[in-house]
Simulated scan of single mutants.
Amino acid sequence: MAGAPIYSKADLARAETYKARDYPANVDPAIETLVREMMSGFADKWTVTILDTLWDSGTLRFSELARQVTGISQKMLTQTLRRMQRDGLVVRTLYPSVPPKVEYTLSPLGMTLGAAFCNVWIWALENHKAVDDARARFDEAE
């Protein structure tokens, strides 16, 4: 059948391994709500980009972070950092000086999330060829 996905036995076995994980049948609604809230927060590109930047660079002043996160407005950077701070992912340190010095760093909780995002990078390394092939098959069928 033209355009049908071509998966290797190894691909199918890996998918079955993920499906077979022992997840609880009845998830606590509070946990489900937290996952949905956090995922919707990560869905925007700025949260992931800021997380990645702080993961790579460590502690940064607001202006340094703004320079490294290309394309973000000051308002959006402030809003995203506040949300990340509220969620416990970022620590904001204000130093009493003129002008005020503010630094941001990932909290221990933010570091655990950064480690989780490392798995996305690993997935991308392992699967980039399969994604490229799937895109090529799709584009050919169009």
Rank of each mutant, 00 (worst) to 15 (best):
P99I: 05
T78H: 13
A116G: 13
A66V: 12
T33Y: 08
V91Q: 09
A2R: 14
V35K: 03
S107L: 06
G114F: 00
L60M: 11
E37C: 04
D56I: 08
Y18K: 10
P100N: 03
W55C: 13
L51E: 01
C118Q: 15
K45D: 08
L12T: 02
A20K: 10
R86G: 03
T17I: 09
M76K: 12
L113Q: 04
K9L: 14
R21T: 11
A66D: 01
D56C: 11
V90P: 00
V48Y: 00
E16C: 02
T105G: 02
R83T: 14
R14Q: 10
R83F: 11
S97D: 07
T47A: 08
V98S: 13
G88Y: 05
L94Y: 14
W46D: 13
M1A: 14
L89F: 06
P29A: 07
R86T: 13
K101S: 10
F138A: 12
D87I: 01
Y18P: 03
P29R: 01
G41I: 10
S63T: 15
T80F: 04
K45H: 09
V91P: 00
V35P: 01
A4R: 13
N127Q: 12
E37N: 15
G88P: 00
T49H: 02
L125V: 13
P100A: 14
E32F: 04
Q79E: 09
G71E: 01
A4T: 13
Y104Q: 01
Q85G: 03
R86A: 08
V98L: 14
G58S: 02
A124T: 08
L34N: 07
V27D: 03
E32V: 00
A2S: 07
E64F: 08
V91T: 07
M111I: 11
M111T: 10
P24N: 04
R92F: 06
A15F: 13
G3M: 12
D28H: 05
D44N: 15
L34D: 01
V98K: 06
L54D: 00
N119E: 11
K101H: 06
R36K: 15
E32N: 00
P29T: 05
A115M: 11
T49L: 11
D139C: 04
